[in-house]
Amino acid sequence: MTTFLPKEVQAGLDAARKKDQKRNSRMLVEADGQTYRVLRFWETGFALDADSAPHLRGFVDLFDRGEHLYQCLILASEEEAGEMCYEFKRLTAIHGKPPADFVQEDHEVIALLGHQS
């Protein structure tokens, strides 16, 4: 039994796989005011569709369903199987509030005392 597929069939399967990855992906990368859908994300990088993604380099922002997750310094590493892969040089998580430069004490309100007459 052979595993040879005609070029047209292989191209159709690759296009269907890309379309499914784009539909299921929730992450977006924003660079220079443009947004691109992330096909795959891993610890040291991510991949975009090679047809629509430029060779990005520098600072970009990663979002997951509109939530700003990371600010990254990236460079384009390689193109394989219709995906443009990028590697992180720096990956910084975004926090909801600015960092404090002092220790904050935990002063939680335990109970409220009412005014007694």
Score class of each variant (00 low, 15 high):
residue 110 I to D: 10
residue 50 A to T: 02
residue 85 C to N: 15
residue 117 S to G: 11
residue 74 I to C: 12
residue 24 N to C: 01
residue 105 E to M: 14
residue 89 K to T: 08
residue 84 M to Y: 06
residue 58 G to I: 06
residue 86 Y to R: 09
residue 105 E to Y: 03
residue 5 L to R: 00
residue 71 Q to N: 12
residue 98 P to G: 04
residue 77 S to G: 07
residue 34 Q to S: 09
residue 109 V to N: 10
residue 15 A to C: 00
residue 73 L to R: 11
residue 92 T to M: 15
residue 29 V to T: 02
residue 116 Q to K: 13
residue 59 F to R: 10
residue 108 E to Y: 09
residue 115 H to E: 11
residue 59 F to C: 14
residue 5 L to T: 00
residue 9 V to Q: 03
residue 115 H to P: 08
residue 10 Q to T: 02
residue 32 D to S: 07
residue 105 E to A: 11
residue 110 I to A: 07
residue 27 M to D: 05
residue 68 H to C: 12
residue 106 D to I: 07
residue 70 Y to D: 08
residue 31 A to C: 06
residue 19 K to G: 01
residue 85 C to P: 14
residue 65 R to A: 09
residue 110 I to S: 06
residue 86 Y to P: 15
residue 94 I to Y: 06
residue 108 E to T: 09
residue 25 S to L: 12
residue 93 A to W: 05
residue 64 D to Y: 03
residue 114 G to E: 15
residue 4 F to E: 01
residue 109 V to C: 12
residue 108 E to S: 13
residue 112 L to R: 13
residue 7 K to C: 07
residue 42 W to Y: 02
residue 12 G to E: 04
residue 36 Y to V: 03
residue 34 Q to P: 07
residue 99 P to W: 00
residue 55 H to V: 08
residue 87 E to K: 10
residue 47 A to E: 09
residue 72 C to Y: 03
residue 99 P to S: 03
residue 14 D to W: 05
residue 109 V to W: 00
residue 104 Q to F: 01
residue 6 P to L: 04
residue 88 F to Y: 02
residue 35 T to V: 04
residue 47 A to Y: 04
residue 69 L to C: 13
residue 46 F to E: 02
residue 36 Y to C: 02
residue 35 T to F: 00
residue 13 L to K: 05
residue 90 R to K: 12
residue 57 R to C: 09
residue 70 Y to Q: 06
residue 27 M to S: 06
residue 26 R to I: 06
residue 23 R to S: 09
residue 85 C to G: 10
residue 111 A to T: 13
residue 35 T to N: 05
residue 84 M to L: 14
residue 74 I to Y: 08
residue 79 E to I: 11
residue 92 T to G: 12
residue 31 A to L: 03
residue 69 L to F: 05
residue 4 F to W: 00
residue 30 E to N: 04
residue 50 A to K: 05
residue 15 A to D: 03
residue 103 V to H: 03
residue 33 G to R: 00
residue 76 A to F: 05
residue 103 V to K: 05
residue 18 K to I: 12
residue 107 H to R: 11
residue 19 K to V: 03
residue 111 A to E: 15
residue 29 V to A: 03
residue 64 D to I: 06
residue 110 I to M: 09
residue 67 E to A: 12
residue 101 D to S: 10
residue 48 L to P: 06
residue 34 Q to E: 13
residue 75 L to A: 04
residue 69 L to I: 10
residue 95 H to Q: 11
